[in-house]
Design a protein around this nucleic acid. Structure first.
Lengths: 101, 101
DNA sequence: TCGCTATATCGGGTTTTAGCGATATAGTGT
DNA sequence: ACACTATATCGCTAAAACCCGATATAGCGA
């Protein structure tokens, strides 16, 4: 993980809504049990937008930010885009922060 | 550590210069060995400014941000203000991030 | 094809952040 | 008191981030 990548990751976490999204996706069954598609695919963007209470475009941008930083991966199925946490990256980030800080 | 405090801490880390400052202060003897005052007091603002290569006022603001977030503490001696890392807070922050994220 | 849904991207207005020089505050030494 | 040093704060401009509605893209179903 380069310094530039670390920078992008920390910036991605510097917005409370993005941290919330990451947190929600830790246990999707708590908040998104009503999703029509299996949660094993991830959680689709619309449900996350509804939970956040922000506009669709705003939340889409937040998801893009989290994905670009590497914290989320996405899987496109039909017209839906499902997002899930990238646990490996998250752990690497914490470890890197631990030694870098 | 409240959610608002965590937010302030992450925002404080979201600027690369502020992360560098924290890093420099981890082993002050590597970069600030020429300080006239004992490094046990911390590192004075002027030396940090010189190292950062930014204006005095800008670096002073960065130091204030880091201090408000709790990452740095300062000790005023005469006309100098010495800054040092608050290791306890830094470790608490990492731990909190680990469980929150 | 047409209409509907889900999502991404664009354009623009508002807010926040970063940087600087100038100034204020305060300590030091003469 | 005066000059000098160290640092914080102010006032400002520039850049970045945030949010929204509107539009574009693409899949789905009739």
């Amino acid at each position: 993980m380069s310094a530039a990548e670390l920078d992008e990751m920390i910036k991605a976490l510097s917005h409370p809504v993005r941290r919330e999204i990451l947190h929600w996706l830790k246990q999707p069954e708590l908040l998104f049990a009503d999703q029509e598609h299996p949660l094993s695919f991830g959680v689709c963007a619309g449900m996350i937008a509804r939970q956040a209470g922000l506009s669709q475009s705003t939340v889409s941008a937040h998801l893009t930010t989290l994905q670009r930083a590497g914290f989320l991966s996405s899987k496109k199925l039909g017209q839906w885009n499902f997002f899930m946490r990238n646990e490996t990256v998250i752990q690497q980030f914490i470890a890197r922060l631990n030694e870098q800080l």
